[in-house]
Design a binder for these strands. Structure first.
Lengths: 113, 113
DNA sequence: GGTCATAAGTAGGATAACTAGCTATCATTG
DNA sequence: CAATGATAGCTAGTTATCCTACTTATGACC
């Protein structure tokens, strides 16, 4: 399936990339950062986060490295050059998508105002 | 799967409901209206549109009726009361979602400006 | 007759996000 | 000391959405 055809979903990937744009983070920290940034809206379960990070890694958009901090193993992810490029284009296509959806929703009459 | 958990996708349903907020339309007209409103972005294949309309109908959000115009059969869909209520709440949750995503994307640094 | 726009579908597959479970370490608290 | 909770990671399996590709049919136009 081509990526261009996936306008209607896959926004999670963009959010993960954006969260890592500040600098490298390990998975759990990404989850916490997303929860703090988006409130309960983006309090995503680990079963969503970890596979997504792995997916982005195997797509070459992230690079993950193992480390041990305080006895706990961590996998820290950093944006690759391709990841930065993807984030940049995702940002543009998000704005495009979001403004188009908003325009359609606002042009429609509001029956239950 | 609960509806609240579905924030990250299902935006198509909202767009279809919004397109029908102007008044009843048949499937092909919905497709055309969406294409005109959103450009190539929302030029969705019939294999996406028709099942989605059926889905919304069986969910009680749309009501469909058959007619024949110019020798061609049409199934015209109209928003039900539940559909209008859903559109209204979808609109609110879209704005919530969209502004949260935009905030995260804009707070992240832009490496490839 | 052939092709295009209109109009409606179905079948099947890919995949994303979720639920529900698991392992393990460290700190805190009873 | 034992239990619990926060931290940190993972997998298996389910469900639903959207897509591709295809079919059927009419009317208009060349």
């Amino acid at each position: 399936m081509r990526a261009e055809a996936q306008i209607l979903k896959g926004h999670l990937d963009t959010l993960l990339l954006a969260t890592l744009a500040d600098g490298p983070r390990h998975g759990y920290a990404v989850k916490e950062a997303l929860r703090e940034a988006g409130g309960a809206r983006f309090d995503l379960p680990t079963g969503t986060i970890y596979p997504a990070l792995r997916r982005l890694e195997s797509a070459g958009l992230l690079e993950g490295t193992w480390s041990v901090v305080g006895g706990r193993r961590r996998r820290t992810y950093a944006l690759t050059a391709a990841g930065r490029r993807r984030l940049s284009s995702d940002r543009a296509s998000w704005q495009d998508f979001a403004s188009a959806v908003t325009a359609i929703l606002e042009s429609a009459p509001c029956p239950a105002t």
